[in-house]
Design a protein around this nucleic acid. Structure first.
Length: 313
DNA sequence: TCTGGGGTCCTAGGACCC
DNA sequence: TCTGGGGTCCTAGGACCC
């Protein structure tokens, strides 16, 4: 699949998540490169180091190519241009900068800054810029939630912003309901948190080119996944407290099944646990995907559940 | 066209306890 | 024998993000 595409390719309708075959049909002379994680990670580290080197900033990394920078200034655009120049000089990479008075506004602003630009979104222009847009354009609202909001008569960001947070509780629960209303207003945390990231777990998964039917194949696959997960876990050096085997049966749309068991960090016990979970697989049903996740013990002081930013780093 | 891989957090419901 | 009410913990599944 296409992980990402250049702006030139996007002009032809190519984008993330598209099967390669389709992309190649749309742009027959496109240059298609394999994923090179090591190169991206190295570039990412240089970029993040460049951000951290800026005077007076707090940096919160969101992914390989994205970070919040916290700073108080009278002229954020000047800082933005300065950062872009510094990143370009050190890495030959262009970046876009969204400026905001909350994390959500800054994040959403980045979309308007692309490519390689700067855009400011604050309480002052939020409703002008975002109000008439579909809720799907918000960071944290996907197709499912925008559909459920539509059922409640909420289609635009302005309508979401005007909604009573309590009215959303029956549909989305005590936490997510009020949070969506806040999201509609662009409100929320305004402070960048540079607390070092603590991983909650590590996982590996494989989609098989040919569905697995033979128990011996499943056994092999589980052993291989376990070894790969263990690599990350050992590098982490923290205790494993749970193990989940994800099973996706062949017609792709059928449900994913997961089973969790408590386990200790001993490699043999983890393998035994994974194999035990695999023993629960329905006999004879072709398997399309297997995934194994090890949940790690959290240090007592680790924060949990206070940020709307899922998929942290 | 129909699907990659690695993550996080929330919710509902059941089990169990007092 | 059946029932109140409150709390915690755990699991399975859902949704979203990069």
């Amino acid at each position: 699949m296409v992980s990402t595409a250049s702006y030139e390719a996007r002009a032809f309708g190519v984008g993330s998540g598209m099967p390669l075959r389709i992309a190649a049909r749309k742009v027959p002379d496109a240059v298609i490169l394999p994923v090179d994680q090591e190169a991206y990670l190295a570039a990412s580290e240089t970029v993040m180091a460049t951000l951290r080197a800026q005077p007076g900033v707090t940096v919160q990394v969101l992914g390989w190519d994205e970070a919040f920078m916290g700073i108080e200034t009278e002229n954020p655009e000047a800082i933005a241009r300065q950062v872009q120049a510094a990143v370009l000089e050190r890495t030959q990479l262009h970046c876009s900068v969204g400026i905001g008075d909350t994390l959500v506004r800054a994040k959403v602003a980045t979309g308007f800054a692309k490519p390689a630009g700067v855009f400011r979104l604050t309480a002052g222009n939020w409703s002008d810029v975002m109000g008439s847009r579909p809720t799907r354009d918000l960071w944290g609202v996907g197709t499912k939630v925008s559909g459920r909001l539509a059922k409640l008569g909420i289609n635009t960001v302005a309508e979401l912003a005007a909604s009573d947070p309590q009215d959303l509780v029956p549909e989305f629960g005590p936490k997510m309901g009020p949070w969506y209303a806040e999201l509609g207003r662009g409100d929320g945390a305004g402070v960048v948190d540079d607390t070092p990231w603590v991983a909650r777990g590590h996982s590996r998964e494989t989609t098989f080119q040919r569905d697995l039917t033979d128990p011996a194949q499943v056994d092999d696959a589980v052993r291989e996944l376990t070894a790969r997960v263990l690599e990350d876990v050992l590098a982490e050096g923290r205790p494993v407290i749970g193990l989940t085997l994800k099973i996706r049966y062949a017609p792709f749309v059928t449900t994913t099944r997961a089973r969790k068991i408590p386990v200790t960090s001993d490699g043999n016990e983890i393998l035994a646990g994974a194999l035990g979970l695999a023993a629960g697989i329905e006999a004879g049903r072709p398997i399309r995907l297997l995934g194994l996740r090890a949940e790690l013990a959290m240090p007592d002081d680790a924060r949990k559940g206070h940020t709307p930013t899922r998929g942290g780093w």
